[in-house]
Every structure is written in structure tokens, then in C-alpha cells.
Design a binder for these strands. Structure first.
Lengths: 324, 324
DNA sequence: TTGTAAGCGTTATCAC
DNA sequence: GTGATAACGCTTACAA
């Protein structure tokens, strides 16, 4: 800045102003400064700026998995909105572990982010303590609670599982099974589904809990296991459309008809779900809105609006297609 | 640090040492300092540290799309290795656009990253200029060239397309078509495939270039278009396993047999590719090795090893399954 | 509209 | 082994 200023015949501060508050500088000097910047190829140093202003213009975001489209798709929209306001996003993967989450929060807080995005509402005591004493806006997504750290945006997984069970009964199914990946929210949906379906039909609902992430191959294995257990007629609620897709493929390879023999309900409404054979009946959550709302809430808080936003329920929608 | 030092009965500098170079501090004072840190809940400020030491411990990474598993999967491995060395990764999405890439590079350089990862080897002149004058290690992935900005790690897309054509001929196919998403590297693979297959068979190879990212639904549409053009017998080379999967589904819905009528070769060897009906013949690239090598190369350069690494060819492998 | 001075919270370089 | 002192490259009063 010193150099640029000398070249433009002004002091270093004026260069700073030209960059952050162009209106506060006369048009002529602004022009000279911009020329000087072009000539020197000056690149501002945001770390010095962050230190001086105590604003890093950095937002930290923690997701369970960056390769899972459900999370990466959401993050894409979140980042797009956040970036448009001049912030950068430091994204990290927690791998569904609270200890890992705590370690990452500690590391990220050293970067003095202006805001933080967390996935889910269950965090370790240590994490909550750090978050509170950091004194920055925090938004928790994908789930809702009455006691968020700061703001939460999501929907009720229990209601989702419950409603899917009602839907399945409405479609006339008398027997059901459930398959869930090793995701705490998926398990809550599954539990709510099983409880409600049992309640409605007085039947037992077999469950399969995976110890891994959802995938087509896990879906195939799950159906194989269910069939081996004698389940070859009824509806299966999956925690992910990937599992549902796998079940459809496995059913096909076993010459079981979907949905006549095995019906399938997925979760997530992924981009392929309307294009499989048959198309997948699923639960749709608007990830674009969820990501954008999270960004908006964070931006609003970071700009000092201590508005009374606490909890936003974005809801969900059951999309009836041909698989169930 | 001042506060922590007072509590431990030492100066601020000693606290800094205890954190960065514990061996240079006597065991007793180290203990006192650690206790003081625990008591105060002190969180180091890395932005001040970065300013003073001129090392941000930050690595910037630019990928075309964060929702595409091909890129996010690679980044996962890259990030895992980089993080283990105490660096954080600032990941951004370029959307396959060079202008966007340049804008993002400019923005990220303000954060003074210690290293940079770029996807592909084609960048705007402005980007190259900024990169050069930034004077930091740069690694370009997914492709190889004799003239990298600094280091490149990948494989030859032309050779991949060429080899797939040879493979297809070897499997006995006399007619071929190609489908590619709007990714510059995908187009080069497609061109090489078409050229080689034409050369071998003296036949025309119809092509479909999408103006969007690969997906199952795009694959279905592509087969529909090819069939409409009269292509209902032969092998189709796709730029992604997602497209290949879509083609399999569309073939099934049209009662075309795979591979007897329509054979399909994908690209990427995604985790579902071995589990479709039939399993997808594809091109495998080891994303874990690619990501880890990129991280290693960057770390080594950032640690001052001006080793003579310039270009690493990680190769690829054609995985023969049942779809072709 | 522009400039001066005092930080921001660390690390680097010395000296002790 | 420890401490004083000077940066690091900006922003924020405040003054002119």
C-alpha cells in the first residue's frame, strides 16, 4: 500500500480507503490509485486487514462428509450466497464424529472466523463451550430444536419418519422394513417410521442399520439380507435414495417387481431419483433454500442484526413416484 | 498470550515459544503455561501468527464442482493429507469457467495461502501471471503437460480416449458413439476416442456433447437421441459413469439389451459402477493416490524442498465389466 | 478529502 | 532458557 500510495502521490491510508470505501476518496485520486494498483500488480493482504479490523471475512462450515451429495449440494448453495457478500468459506469434514467435530472447531476458531455453520444439533460439551465463548454467530442446519446454540435451520426428522409411515399405510402397504445408514438423523427418521408403522399395523418392522454411509451397493446388500430374513413383500423405507436405488437394482436381479413385490421409499430426492426404473418415491428437502437461508441468517447476524431468529423449519415433502 | 504469561509468571514471548517450540522451554514453565492456557481457555490467534510469520498455513484449492463426486472424492483425500500437517484448505468452485477461476484466484491470493491447487492445466493469462508473481507452490491436477505452472499430477486424457477405442475394437464392436459432458477434459477424451475408433473401423462415430454436467437423466436423454439418429447397435463411450448408468436405464426401458444391443463404457469407476445391472465397464483413475500425491508434492514444496518434481503421471486403468 | 498515529496479536531477532 | 524490541501490513480513530 505504501508503494502504491507513493506512485499515486498519496499516503498509505488513502490507498486503504480507496479499496474499502471508494466514496470517501476524490474521483481523481481514486483513479490515480487504481492505475497505480494496476501498474504494481498490488494484491491486498487480507490477513493484515483481518488482524487490524478484527473481521476475518471468513466463515467456517462443518459437514459430516464432503463427498455426500446431500451435504455438498447444500454447501454449494450456502457458499454461493456467502461468497456474494465477500466472505470465504473454510469447509471441514467431521465424519459424523463429535470428537472430530470438537477438534476441528478448536482448530478453526484459531482462524477467527466471523461465523460458523454446524451440521446437526448434537455437539459435545466442549464444542458448545468453545462456541459460546467464541462469541460469534453459529447456525446449526438439517435439524431443529428448541435450544439451538444460536440459530437452527432444518426440519423434524421424527415428523418425517412418522409421515412416511402414514403415507405408506395410505398407499395400502401392510408390511414394512427400514434401512438406515450410520447417520444419527437417519436413525431418528427410521425409528419414527418403525414406531408409527408398528402402531398403525400392529406388525413388526424389521430394520437394518448400516455401519457405513449409504450407497447403491449397500442398498443391494440390504435387500439381500431382508429377503434372507423372509421379507419379500412390502415397503422398505431407506435413509437415502442411494439405498433405495440399490434395492431397486437388487430386486430386479432377483426378479422381484417394484413396487408390486417390494416397494421402496427413499430420502433426499437426489437428481437421479426421478429417472430410475421405476422412479423413486422419496422425501424432498429443499437443499437450495436450506443453504441459502443458513447463509442469510449468518450474514444477518454477522452484520450485527441481533434479530430474534432462533429456529427456522423449512419442512419436507413426500414425493409420490412409482416405487411405492 | 500476555494474560496467559502473567498467570504463568512468564513473558508473552515465552508463551509463544511454548506453543510453537515446546522443546525450547523448560519443562516446569511449559507445564505452568499449559495450565494457564487451560484455565483461561486461551485460543491462539492464527491470523496474527500468519501476519508475523508470513505463513498462513492455508492452502487454496480450486475445483470445477464441489458436488461432483469425482472432484469432491479427490479433495477428501487431498484435504486429509494436508490437514495432517497442520494446514487448512480453502476450497472454491470454478464452475468450469476460466474467468471465474481467475476471479477466485485473485480473491484467494489476498488470503496469502502457502500453496495452491488448481484443476486442469488450462488457465487464463491473467491467472498464470498472478500465480507466478505470488511466488507460492502450485499444483495442477487431473491432467499432465510439459509446461506446468509449477507441478502437475494426472494422466493423459488423450491416451485414455485412444486406449478405450482400442479396447472397444478388441471387444469386437464395429460401431461406436460418444457422449460427453461440458468438461474440457471429457471433450478431449471423447475426441481421442472418436478419432481412434474412426481410424480403426473407417466408420463415422456419432457424438453428443452436453451443455451440462453429467447425470443419469442426461445419459437417458443421450441414448434417446442416439436411437432417434438410428444408432441402436454398438458401443457408447461416456465421459462419466453417471451417463453410462443413465444409458443402461434408458436401454432397459426400451427393451434394448446391454451389452448385446447397446454396450456402454463409462469413465471414473464410481462406487456404484460395479453394482449396476449389468456392471459398468469403465476407466479407473486412483483418486486417492492422485489427491495424496498432490498434497505430498505441495507439502514438500511448502517445506522448502525445491525438488525437481515437475510432472507425475498416475495413469489409468480400463476395468472390463459386463456393460461392454 | 487527506494524513498522522496508534494499535491488531503474533513471530523473529537479538541480547542476556 | 528467557525476555525486550521491532516488525508483519493493514484499519481505526482523530486531526488537519
Amino acid at each position: 500500500m505504501e508503494t502504491v500510495g507513493r506512485l499515486a502521490g498519496v499516503s498509505q491510508v488513502t490507498v486503504s480507503r480507496a479499496l474499502n470505501n471508494p466514496k470517501k476518496v476524490s474521483p481523481q485520486t481514486l483513479k490515480r490509485i487504481q492505475d497505480a494498483i494496476a501498474v504494481t500488480g498490488y494484491v491486498p493482504n487480507l490477513v493484515a486487514g483481518a488482524l487490524a479490523s478484527r473481521r476475518s471475512h471468513l466463515v467456517a462450515a462443518l459437514v459430516p462428509s464432503i463427498t455426500n451429495i446431500v451435504y455438498s449440494g447444500l454447501m454449494k448453495h450456502f457458499i454461493d450466497v456467502i461468497r456474494a457478500s465477500g466472505y470465504h468459506v473454510l469447509m471441514s469434514e467431521t465424519g459424523f464424529s463429535q470428537e472430530e467435530e470438537q477438534a476441528i472447531v478448536a482448530a478453526l476458531l484459531s482462524r477467527r472466523p466471523d461465523g460458523l455453520l454446524l451440521t446437526g444439533i448434537h455437539h459435545s460439551a466442549g464444542t458448545r463451550r468453545m462456541l459460546l465463548s467464541a462469541g460469534i454467530p453459529v447456525v446449526e442446519i438439517w435439524d431443529i430444536t428448541d435450544t439451538p446454540v444460536d440459530i437452527c435451520i432444518g426440519f423434524s426428522h421424527i415428523k418425517a419418519g412418522h409421515d412416511v409411515a402414514d403415507f405408506a399405510r395410505m398407499r395400502g402397504y401392510h408390511r414394512a422394513a427400514a434401512v438406515a445408514a450410520n447417520d444419527e438423523r437417519a436413525l431418528r427418521r427410521k425409528d419414527a417410521f418403525c414406531a408409527r408403522f408398528s402402531e398403525l399395523t400392529k406388525t413388526d418392522v424389521p430394520e437394518i442399520c448400516l455401519d457405513s454411509a449409504a450407497s447403491i451397493s449397500r442398498g443391494r446388500e440390504a435387500l439381500a439380507r431382508l429377503v434372507a430374513q423372509g421379507f419379500d413383500k412390502g415397503v422398505i423405507f431407506c435413509s437415502s435414495d442411494l439405498l433405495a436405488h440399490g434395492i431397486i437394482i437388487e430386486a430386479q436381479s432377483r426378479h422381484l417387481n417394484v413396487p408390486q413385490d417390494i416397494a421402496v421409499i427413499g430420502f433426499g430426492d437426489q437428481d437421479f431419483s426421478a429417472h430410475t426404473l421405476p422412479p423413486i418415491t422419496t422425501v424432498h428437502v429443499d437443499r437450495e433454500i436450506l443453504g441459502a437461508r443458513a447463509a442469510d441468517a449468518l450474514l444477518s447476524r454477522m452484520n450485527g442484526n441481533d434479530a430474534n431468529i432462533r429456529c427456522i423449519d423449512v419442512g419436507f415433502e413426500i414425493i409420490a413416484r412409482d416405487s411405492a
